[in-house]
Amino acid sequence: MSFGFNFPALFRAHNTTLQTGIGSGGPFNLQFSEGCEIIGGSRVNIQNNAYLYGDIKIDGSTGKNQSYDIAFDPTKLISTMISEAWQIASEINLTIMVGDDAVYNVAQDNVALTVRQISGSNPGNSSADQTRVFGLRVEVTP
């Protein structure tokens, strides 16, 4: 098996406006893209296979729920593996900061970054300040 990269290999997409009222199961919206197309306001058209990396930042307004379990929602998985990432409130008492709470996946066709679970007492009221999707388009030759 060999691997190559389809052209354009790199693509990215992000939101340009604050997205409010994100509920469980809902997608994170995207408005800007480079090297790919956005379908239906939230899905990135990979066309074929891609290695994906996504991240979000939730608006810090008082009283809004801020903890999301996010994952990619691809139309096709290359394998059954899918990664999730908890986006948790940042206040801690330690000084040393480590960690990467982004989500990674390998998928086909098209994909959205979505909410799998919400934790907290005020679900559906949070706002996504930043939604980021990056990808590397991969060709797999058996």
Partner: peptide, 28 residues
């Protein structure tokens, strides 16, 4: 800017925010 492919790493201390721990630059 993000339009030109620059994405910051922003840790926001507080109970109502989360963070981005990776700063990305990507541009064709």
């Amino acid at each position: 800017t993000t339009a030109d492919g620059g994405y910051d790493a922003r840790f926001e201390d507080g109970i109502y925010s989360n963070s981005t721990y990776v700063a990305v630059y990507q541009n064709l």
